[in-house]
Amino acid sequence: MRAGGGLFAAALFTPITVVYLVFLLAPIGFFLMMSVFRYSPMELWQPAFTADNFVRLLSEEHYRVIIFRTLEIAALTTVFSLMLGFPLAYFLARTGSIWRGVLMFLVIAPLMTGVIVRTYGWIVLLGSEGTVNVVLMWLGVIDEPVKILETQVAVLVALVHILMPYMVFPLFSSLASQDPDVERAAATLGAGRWRIFFEVTLPLSRAGILMGSALVFTLTAGAVVTPALLGGSKVQMLGQTIYDLVLSTLNWPFASAVAFVLVFCQFSIIFLYLKGGRRRVG
């Protein structure tokens, strides 16, 4: 099949190569390069090298707060997604239930509805007359509605909900590919349930955990719509900052510097992922 197919294969790869190079990599490269350009109120940007954007980003209190808040929310979202996603993935990978297909579909279905639908669902749930407040008052936990919207908690809960499936899928792949006999062997040799989990199952799921965490962390760090609608102006994150800088002030160079932080975080995570993966093999 491969003989004489070189030209044909090249032709088949042409459209995707063009699309990725021209419309994905080149624009992103140019946008990130913008971070070392000078901002000008008249021409928006001048191709003159400067480190001003990064200096401003790191020296102004306002932006430092946003960076740390973003990292904090991203880290918490990743941890909670893992804590909820692992039992779910474990259950889906090991269950013999005839409903497994349906249960799997129910994890994918919310994901397909899109970010805006799920964010709206949380607005309804967490509002002052929302279900959560109604239930808490009925249970007698609180006397009057508490304000949940426009707090960091609301943003966190919704982000965990929206991004958890991205954690479940790699975990599921990892867990489903493990031979159940390995766990049985550990049990036969006298290991308890917890010991089996921590010394057999968890280490074998490492690739899935790292992959899922990398995905959830990056996607949280880049979130705009959910923090904007659930957190309002009080829980501003990096994504919204970039959005505002571009759409209201047209300060492309500074927006690029902010985006650079996002990309830097992502590359660090991917680096850790690759390092972790290699250690697992070696």
């Binding site: 990725y20 994905l24 624009p27 992103i28 995905l215 880049g222 990309v263």
Partner: peptide
């Protein structure tokens, strides 16, 4: 390589396209 766009935050893809 083909799955690259999944790993890039979508906001970065669209903002770069807008600039271009």
């Amino acid at each position: 390589l083909a799955l690259l766009p999944v790993m890039i935050p979508h906001i970065l893809i669209s903002i770069s396209l807008l600039l271009a």
